[in-house]
Amino acid sequence: MMIDYKFPLIIFGIVWGIYRAINIILKMKFSFKRELIKALFAFSVVGIYSVTVFPFPFYTYFDSHLPSPINLIPFASIYGSLHHFYYMVPIRNIGGNILLFIPLGFSLPFRFQIRTFWKVTLLGLITSFVVECCQLFIPMRSFDVDDLMLNTLGTGLGFLLYKLFVQFFSKNLEAMQLKEISKN
């Protein structure tokens, strides 16, 4: 029996919604912006966990004495993906590893007020390294240095998207405030 990545996301979404609703009711405070920031960060972390740990084989035979494959050669699996005969392999492997960490890079500055590219990217690298190390102990998963590079790139891209987002909305906010002042 295999459990795919959607199952933990659904369970977490239900538990998260109940927890946040109870928290809001008890505190009698609600800020849509604050809730959105907390949810974005939490779901990015749970999404990373869900996609990297699942599908997880339950009640499936596997030989636990076989070591997990380890790739320590930079660009080896990227090269292999790019030269695969099926076009979805590079999209899934390369694009998936980048896209998976973009929400983390986008949400870290909002959630923890980390405003420098290098700090956010370093946190993405550390998170990816922890995930890759955990995969050493999970059947049918492997440690891959290319995943580290692609995940870190995704975190950096997420931070750049954060910067563009903040720049875009700060300019629009200033323009709206100027229109209000000119009306008065």
Rank of each mutant, 00 (worst) to 15 (best):
I48V: 13
I48F: 00
Y49M: 11
Y49K: 01
Y49V: 12
S50T: 02
S50L: 05
S50Q: 06
V51E: 10
V51Y: 11
V51M: 09
T52P: 07
V53Q: 04
V53Y: 07
F54G: 08
F54C: 03
P55V: 04
P55I: 02
P55D: 04
P55Q: 06
F56M: 11
F58V: 14
F58S: 02
Y59T: 09
Y59F: 15
Y59C: 11
Y59G: 14
T60G: 12
F62Y: 15
F62R: 10
F62M: 06
D63P: 03
D63M: 10
D63Q: 09
S64N: 13
S64K: 14
S64Y: 15
S64R: 12
H65P: 02
H65K: 15
H65R: 15
H65T: 15
H65N: 14
H65S: 15
L66K: 15
S68D: 05
S68A: 15
P69W: 10
I70G: 10
I70A: 05
I70H: 07
N71K: 05
I73L: 14
I73Y: 12
P74K: 02
F75W: 14
A76D: 15
S77W: 07
Y79D: 12
G80N: 14
G80L: 06
G80W: 08
S81Q: 01
S81E: 04
S81P: 08
S81Y: 04
L82P: 11
L82A: 06
H83A: 01
H83F: 14
H83Y: 10
H83R: 09
H84M: 08
H84P: 04
H84V: 08
H84G: 08
F85D: 12
Y86M: 10
Y86K: 11
Y87R: 10
M88H: 14
V89D: 03
V89C: 07
P90A: 07
I91R: 09
R92P: 08
I94P: 02
I94Q: 06
G95Q: 05
G95W: 07
G95R: 05
N97W: 00
I98N: 08
I98W: 08
L99S: 13
L99M: 13
L99I: 13
L100N: 08
L100M: 15
L100G: 08
F101I: 05
I102T: 04
I102W: 00
L104P: 00
L104F: 11
G105Y: 01
G105D: 03
G105C: 02
F106K: 01
F106G: 00
F106Q: 03
L108D: 07
L108C: 02
P109D: 00
F110K: 00
R111W: 06
F112K: 03
F112E: 01
F112R: 03
Q113W: 10
R115Q: 12
F117C: 05
W118N: 09
T121K: 01
L122N: 04
L123F: 09
L123E: 00
L123S: 07
G124W: 00
G124S: 01
I126F: 07
I126S: 05
I126W: 04
S128C: 06
F129W: 13
F129L: 15
F129D: 01
